[in-house]
Each structure stands twice: as structure tokens, then as C-alpha cells.
Amino acid sequence: MSIFVDENTLVAVQGLTGSQGRFHGLRNKAYGTKVVAGVTPGKAGTDVEGIPVYDTVQEAVDAQGVDATFVAVPPRAAPAAILEAAEAGVALVVCITEHIPAKDEAYVAARLQRDFPGTRLLGPNCPGLISPGKCNIGITSGDIALPGGPVGIVSRSGTLTYQALHELSQQGVGQTTCVGIGGDPVPGTTFVDVLEAFEADPETLAVMMIGEIGGEAEELAAEFIKTKMTKPVVAYIAGQTAPEGRKMGHAGAIVSGSKGTAIAKMEALSAAGVTVAKNPTEAGELMVEIVRSLG
């Protein structure tokens, strides 16, 4: 089984007619994802390589029964696009858009929580999610993922997610679902949300978690793992050598004072029974060992 998506998930791409939306939307479709619609205001009636385009998410939902949308629009338009999908009752909204102002993200998060509790937002500024062989929404390369499980991956970083997929696939260890939650300060979906879903998924037997400096999402994940999780978890935290007060690329990756350091996160995870790796390669090796020991 997979989490959040499966082979039947019907996807609409918001911004399918733009360069990012077209490139990644068509790649997702080529991977086998059921990309059934595009949404671009003013472009209803047109199509992108046979995928019909609608003016609004609601029209796409009405015509195609969309379950999930992939938001690939610029930062100024993305907050409204996310809320439009939520208003149309879409259950999963995946937003890859980078550089959305933090205040807009906080507003969207508050609106979703108050008005649209049935909608899950993944991102913004995330690579999306892939359930190998079933569904790929976002910018992950399908070539480096291996179907069949038993590992679930959850990550705050894009390229480190690919690295993790690659390390496991090369060793013949497949993945149930790989979820990139994104590097922004207000992610729609958190580590805890994803860990909870992996814990409940019978086909996921172990979880690889990739965190980074900044915030306390990893500490909250550690608390969850300690009290609620039975499946083995391997973690790696990027930014062990990051200087204080500098944003390391991601808006969320910043050490302020004693808060958000990699060491504090690694200690919290270790104390929760997580196998903590020093680098991504070691994380892959440790995960492979665990999977082999599970038989």
C-alpha cells in the first residue's frame, strides 16, 4: 500500500499550460500517474497533449472527478491556487512553488485549518510525493524510485530525497511512498503527519527520515516516534556544520541561538530510539541493514 496517493488517484495540474506545469505534469503522466486535467484561468477548452484544460479547479473536479491537484504556479498566484483547490473539495494539494512569502503561507495554513480540514496540503516548496509504480505528483524523477516497498521516506529536502531513493534503489530496497514535505517555515504536511500515515500503512515496514536544521519539526517527530511508533526509523539531519543565523538555502533552515541545531535534533531522535546516521550514504546503508534483518 501507499500513503496519500495510489494507482487510482486522479490528478489535475494547476498551471499545466505554464512551463513548469507542462514539463512536470507531462513527466508525471508519462510515469503512469492519472493526470486527467489542467487548470489555467482563461484557457478552458484547450488541451496540453490531450489533457483537457479548465478555467477553475471546480470545473476540473466536476468534469473529471479530481482527487488531487499539483500546484505549479508562481509564488504570487500560489496561495490563491491552493485555497481554490481546497474550496473545490480536493483532498490532496501538492505545491512545489518556492519563495512564497511566509505571511501568505501562514494565512493559507490558518484558512485550511479553519475552513477546509478535509484538504491536505503538501509543501509549499517541496518535491512532491511518489508512490513508485503507482503515482508521482511533483518533480521527483521516477527513474530513481523502486516499487514494492517496504521503506517509506519522508524528507524536508529535495535533492537529499533523491539521494535517499537512489541509495535504497541501488541496493534493491524499494519504497512504498516517498514524501517531500518541503523546506519552508510553514509546511502544510509535517513529519508527524507522514510518520503517522506510515505507521498505519501495513506495507511500510521501516521509515527513513531526512531532516535539516531550523524549527522544531524533528523534535516533534522524535516525540511522536517515542510514544506512538513501532516501526524502525533511520534519520539523517543535514546542516551539522551550519553557522548560526544564516539561512542555508531553504527559508526554514536557520539556526537561531541554541534552537534548531542539528545536534539537538539528532540527540532527540536518538533518545527516541531512532537510528541516526552521520551522512546520507550511511543512512542508506543502515536502512538496508534494517530491511534485510526484517527478512
Binding site: G158, T159, Q163, E212, I213, T241, A242, G249, H250, A262
Partner: peptide, 13 residues
């Protein structure tokens, strides 16, 4: 990628 860049710093260290 920001994560990979941070990770590279770590491994060099």
C-alpha cells in the same frame, strides 16, 4: 539543492 549542499558541508567536516 540546499539539502545536498548542507550535507556536503557536513561530510567535508
Amino acid at each position: 539543492g540546499a539539502g545536498l549542499a548542507m550535507s556536503t558541508l557536513d561530510v567535508v567536516n
